[in-house]
Write a protein that binds this DNA or RNA. Structure first.
Lengths: 231, 231
DNA sequence: TGTACATCAGTGAACGCGCGTTCACTGATGTAC
DNA sequence: TGTACATCAGTGAACGCGCGTTCACTGATGTAC
């Protein structure tokens, strides 16, 4: 009886890379295939170690083919950043839409859902999150830097929910102006501390942390400026 | 009369680079000269574009000389990250020490001073801040990741001030556990949004933003868990 | 339905480059006697 | 005070490599007649 012992382990394959299949001369959708490969490779080697050539190879295409669709490497990374921002915005909208009703509890729930969406996106796609805020992200767009976040982006959605909270009486009128700053900073800080590996959640579920921080923000925004601050 | 018009502008020199002076065979302190050059170069081209060779050249030394002091490129960047963390910690201590007294106002002032120190470090040294939280920073140290921040680091100092605030009655006992999370997230988020170019302060002075966010945090921590949250 | 042709999306070889790292070496330094 | 020698901190040439980008090209596609 011929024995062939199957391997007990197959080596870790890592996240699936679009398998290099060169079947058709014309690739179906090379631009997005390249973006997808970029995300996978960045997850693997960091933005540092990302190369256009490797992305092309992963897709099964010659390096120069990429230049048919992107002016250069930076343009590809910019597209990755743009996609990430768009998906984040979409998740924001979806999270908000899922909660109906106009009471204070609903407004609060929508606010927390947004926070969860933000941090969960970061946790699920740390590499895309990093690119978003890296040198090829929104910040590189010059003076109109945060435009991508503002117009129709996460920032706009946050503003809308804060308005609701104001209407619902959850936050105090005096504290509404600039309330975005606190909420965005707190949630973004949590996300970035996690993504950068600086902060580690032990057993605590991520959603719990977000809720805690979100609640804290609302508590801060509920009190008028002169409210007694000392317990 | 011979006219020689002096240039109206001298081109922006950028931050001073340690001038390559090869005078002595033995460099005074090559390790820190390399770190310094690294910081300057990273400020110029980003961590992405940083190379050991260029740092060596900036210091006026052959590329291989660096290997006498650092195992490899990553080790040098790790040293840069470590230095940044150390300086941040030192600034924290200094900021805290500057405020004397044990009343609630003093504790609050110390808390805000720490926040200012954090964000100001980020604003003054965005490249070092980025390296600190980048792939060569604290987060890369594995499971004991945030140890650098905890033991004797900024995190420890923050905890101490929160204890003071508790004692002084500024924050509510119920809300003390885990209060670091809110404060660190909020301040770190502000710092990172600024450094990444996502958020832009208009005319608002940086210190004003920090104070606002710090105050918000304290407001949130002042109320007991069941405090009325709706204004 | 069939052919000519413009357009599009790839190929693959080549370019010059700067990189991280190694190696055998040499100049400077300081210590023992 | 002077010399021998171990140690330290540099040099500089070389390695192999993968990178971004270009170029002249060719195969596939679709449209006009």
């Amino acid at each position: 009886m011929a024995l062939s012992t199957p391997p007990l382990f197959t080596p870790l394959p890592g996240p699936a890379l679009p398998t290099p299949q060169r079947s058709p001369y014309h690739h179906g959708d090379l631009p997005s295939a390249l973006k997808q490969a970029a995300v996978t490779l960045i997850a693997r080697h960091g933005v540092q170690g990302f190369s256009l050539r490797e992305a092309a190879a992963a897709v099964g295409v010659s390096p120069s083919a990429a230049y048919r669709h992107y002016a250069d490497k930076a343009a590809l990374l910019g597209a990755v950043a743009g996609d990430a921002l768009a998906e984040m915005a979409q998740r924001f909208t979806a999270a908000t839409a899922r909660v109906r009703g106009r009471g204070p509890r609903d407004a609060r729930a929508r606010f927390l859902a947004q926070g969860r969406a933000y941090v969960e996106f970061a946790a699920e796609h740390p590499e895309r999150f990093a690119v978003m805020f890296g040198p090829f992200g929104a910040g590189s767009a010059g003076p109109a830097a945060c435009a991508g976040h503002r117009v129709g982006g996460p920032f706009a959605a946050l503003s809308a929910v804060l308005d609701e909270l104001l209407e619902a009486g959850v936050i105090h009128p005096q504290r509404r102006p600039g309330a975005e700053l606190l909420a965005w900073s707190a949630i973004h800080g949590l996300a970035h501390l996690l993504v950068s590996g600086t902060l580690e959640l032990g057993a605590t579920p991520l959603a719990r942390l977000v809720e805690r921080i979100g609640d804290d923000c609302l508590r801060a925004l509920a009190a008028p400026d002169d409210a007694p601050r000392e317990a």
